[in-house]
């Protein structure tokens, strides 16, 4: 489903990828590990078209990442960035705006409430602004958006780093149980305990 073929990328005179070959099958769950600065996040940015490779080919469902297909490709990928870079504003306004611009498969109000409960997010929190949230709350809002949008591919950059152990376990089990194609970047060992994950170690 996702393919990197002989990919080369140089940024600021630093070689980030040289002859990278990497692929992910449909509904596969891949955990990428490796020290920081090795280009894990850049991998996600390439898939979203935020960075452009110097040489090689990056494809999504056999479509090249480029002007022609980018809208289609982005509509299928949910990206949770490490710092959850949501623009500031009231959480509920942001959620409304997101729902207004995305067609949801499951528009059930009950589904929304279930997700809030599952993520331990209170109604009161929805009236706060993004800036007022703690790191853990922000992470859970990011995951809430992920589960709501329900896109087929999830790119998750440290999705559990700010959560407590109980919540971590709950979320890992939930995520790995989904019929989704998921690429993960995480230093949390809790992902490895599950056999559903294929581990990709970058040195």
């Amino acid at each position: 489903m996702i393919k990197f073929e002989s990919v080369y990328l140089i940024r600021n005179n630093k070689e980030i990828f040289s002859n990278l070959n990497f692929s992910v099958q449909k509904n596969e769950k891949v955990l990428i590990q490796g020290k920081s600065g090795i280009g894990k996040t850049t991998l996600f940015k390439l898939l979203l078209g935020f960075e452009i490779i110097d040489k090689g080919r990056v494809s999504f469902n056999d479509l090249d990442i480029g002007k022609e297909h980018i809208k289609n490709i982005r509509s299928q990928i949910f990206y949770l960035s490490q710092d959850i870079d949501l623009k500031d504003g009231r959480v509920s306004d942001l959620l409304d705006e997101i729902l207004e611009h995305n067609v949801l498969k499951n528009q059930d109000k009950g589904h929304f409430t279930d997700l809030l409960n599952f993520l331990d997010l209170s109604d009161k929190l929805l009236d706060q602004t993004i800036k007022e949230l703690s790191g853990g709350e922000r992470q859970r809002i990011g995951l809430l958006i992920c589960f709501l949008l329900d896109r087929p591919v999830w790119l998750l950059d440290e999705p559990t780093s700010a959560l407590d152990d109980i919540m971590k376990k709950k979320i890992v089990d939930y995520i790995l149980d989904q019929e989704k194609t998921i690429i993960l970047i995480s230093h949390d060992n809790v992902w490895k305990k599950n056999n559903a994950v294929k581990i990709e170690r970058w040195l």
């Binding site: 979203l48 935020f50 982005r74 990206y79 960035s81 870079d85 623009k87 705006e97 997101i98 611009h101």
Partner: peptide
């Protein structure tokens, strides 16, 4: 200055207009 947030909006809304609006 706000590039990360802008790009994140692009990925969530999948619409340039929506991301540029603010």
């Amino acid at each position: 200055k706000d590039e990360k947030v802008y790009l994140y909006s692009i990925s969530i809304f999948n619409s340039r207009i929506q991301a540029l609006k603010p």
